[in-house]
Design a protein around this nucleic acid. Sequence first.
DNA 1: AACGCTCCCGTGAACGTTCACGGCGTGGCG
DNA 2: CGCCACGCCGTGAACGTTCACGGGAGCGTT
Lengths: 322, 322
Amino acid sequence: MSQRITINDVASAAGVSRQTVSRALNDKGEIDGDTKQRVLDAAKELGYRPSRFARGLVRPDTTSIGLVIPDLLNPFFTEVAAAALEAARAKGWHVVVYDTADSVDEELSTLQVIGSQVDAVVGYFNLSETQLDQHTHGIPVVLIGREHHATRFSSIRIEGAQGVRSAVDHLVAAGHRRIGMLDHAHAEPSDKHQWFCDAMNAHGLSPDKVAGAVQSVDGGADALTRLLKAQPDVTAIFTFNDIIAIGALRAARRSGRDLAVIGFDGLQLGTVVDPALTTVALDTRKIGALAVEQAARLMAGDEPLSGEDLVVQAVLLLRESA
Amino acid sequence: MSQRITINDVASAAGVSRQTVSRALNDKGEIDGDTKQRVLDAAKELGYRPSRFARGLVRPDTTSIGLVIPDLLNPFFTEVAAAALEAARAKGWHVVVYDTADSVDEELSTLQVIGSQVDAVVGYFNLSETQLDQHTHGIPVVLIGREHHATRFSSIRIEGAQGVRSAVDHLVAAGHRRIGMLDHAHAEPSDKHQWFCDAMNAHGLSPDKVAGAVQSVDGGADALTRLLKAQPDVTAIFTFNDIIAIGALRAARRSGRDLAVIGFDGLQLGTVVDPALTTVALDTRKIGALAVEQAARLMAGDEPLSGEDLVVQAVLLLRESA
DNA sequence: AACGCTCCCGTGAACGTTCACGGCGTGGCG
DNA sequence: CGCCACGCCGTGAACGTTCACGGGAGCGTT
C-alpha cells in the first residue's frame, strides 16, 4: 500500500546500490555522469523523498529551536520573533514557531509536542516552572521577561524602572503635573504601574489617576475617555503599551484635547501614527538575539550569560506625542 | 568527550535495559513505580535528552511544514503567517518559519536547508520554478500569489480586479474624477496597477497620474508629495498597499489637503490610523488556511483543490478615508 | 608483465529509538 | 500440586540514511 519509498527502491529501480543513489542526490562526486542522471530520473519517477529523520540520525548537524509566542499579531511579539528568526538564521538554526494565543491550555499542548521536535525552547510562558519542567522533556528553556530557578532554565530580564523614570522626568520638565496612567485591565497592577508610581513619588506627585485598559486600540481610546471624565484636569498620560497609547492618542485628538502621551514598547508602529508616539522603548532585536544566544550556550554547555548581560533596559524614545 | 548521552547510558546507570527506560520516559505502563523513579532520576542526572531523529524514524507521526515569508515585519505577511500557524496547529503540524528578507540569495540558502527538515513548503518566492524544482528535493510546494506549472507545485491565486474596480467605482460615485495611484517602485508595473487602469478606463477616465513608492510609510508620504507636485489637481488616490496608503494619508493631512485614499491589503493596522483607512481587502486568514489545506492534500496524495477554490478575491472595505 | 593510480561502485556497520515478542517470578485458583 | 494469569522486564529486529572501507576495471608507467 502506501509504503514509504526508500533509497533502496530507487537503487533497485536504477540498478545500482544505496550508496550510489546517496551520492547522486547529494552531489558527492565519485559517480559517473550517466549513472547519476539515471538515478535522478528514477528518483523523480518514483517520487522519492529522503527521510529527514534517517538523515538527521546519522548526520546530526541541524539544530532547531522552538519559539513560543502568545500572540503573533501583536506587533511587539512580531518584532521579537523577527529578531529571533534573524539571530537563529545567523547560526544556521531552524525555528519552529508556536502561537499559544496567551492560553495556558495551548501552552501545555504545545509543550506536549515540542519536546520531540526541537533542541531548545525560547519564549513567553504563563505556566509555572514546575509544569514547564514536567512537560519539557529535559531540553533547555529560555524564559523571556520572567524569573527562573532551575539551572536548565534561563531568563531574559526586562528592566524598565529607569526608562519610565525618564519618561516622567520628561513630562515634568515640560511642565506637566497632573499625569495619569492607563494600565492593563488585569486584577493586579503591572510592573509598569509600579515603576510609574516610583517615578511620580520621586517628584512628589501622586500617581492616583489610573484607569485599566483592554489591550487594543479601542481599549485605549475607551480608557482614556473614562479617565478624562473622572479626572478632567489630566494633561499627560503614560500607558501600559503602545497599542493602548495609540488609542488614547486618537481619543484625545477626536475630543480636541491637547494631551501628552507616552507609550511603552517602542514599536515601529508608533511612527505611523500622527503625531508619532513618544514611548519607553524596549530593544526587541536585542531581546530576540539574547534569547537565541542564551539558548546556544545552554545547549553547548558553555558558560551561560548571566547578571547584567541578560537584562534589557527600557529607554525613553522621544518622538512627537510628548 | 562531548559524546551524546543515549538511552543505553541511562539504562546502565539505572541498572535496567533500554526498553525499561523507554517505558519510564513515555509513561507506557508495564513498569514498577520504584524502577520508573530510579530511571527518571538517572535520566535527569545525566541530562539525557532523547534524539528526535531516532524517535521520528521509528514512529513517523509528526509532520512539519516550512513557511517562507519575505518580511515578517510587514503586517500583511504577519497576518498570513498567523493564519497559517493556526491552520497548521489545527492539524497538529509544526511550522518552521523562514524570513527571506525578500532576497533571492536568502531564498536559495533557505531552500538548501529546508528539504531535509520539512515535509512541504508554503510561501512566497521570487525564484523561478526551475530553481525551485532543483533545490527543493522533491517535496510539495505551495506558491502564494503566483502561478505554477509543475504538478508537484500548487498555487493560491490572488484575484483583485473586481475589488479594485469597486474602489474606483466608489471614488467616482463620490464625485472624484482625477484619481491618482501610488504603485510600487519596481521597474515593471504591478498587477494592481493593471487592475487600476482597467477600472479607470471603464469609466472613461485616464489613469495617467501614477508615482512609484518605496514600500514604507515614509515612502508613501514621499511619493504622494511628488505626485501632488506634478499633478496638483488630484483629489483621490489608490495605493499599492496599506503601508504606502498610511504614509500618503499622513502627508496629505500635514499639507492640509483633503484627499480620499484607498489602500490595498486590508490590514488591521488600517484601523489604528485616523481617519481609518478604506482599503481593498484580502482575507489573510483564508490565504493562510488555503495554503495549509493545499499542502495537506498534496502530501496525502488527495485530489488537490483547484480552480475557483484556490482564488482569494479582494473586496472593497469601506472605512473612513474614502 | 607487474605495479600503481584513478575512477566508479558496492557492502557492512552505525546512528538512537520503539515495536514485537518472549521470559521469569509471584500469586491465585481449581 | 499443577496450571494459568499477570506484572514486570529484557532481547532481537527494524526504521532509512550516511560513513568507512574495500574492490574491480581501465590505463599508463617502469
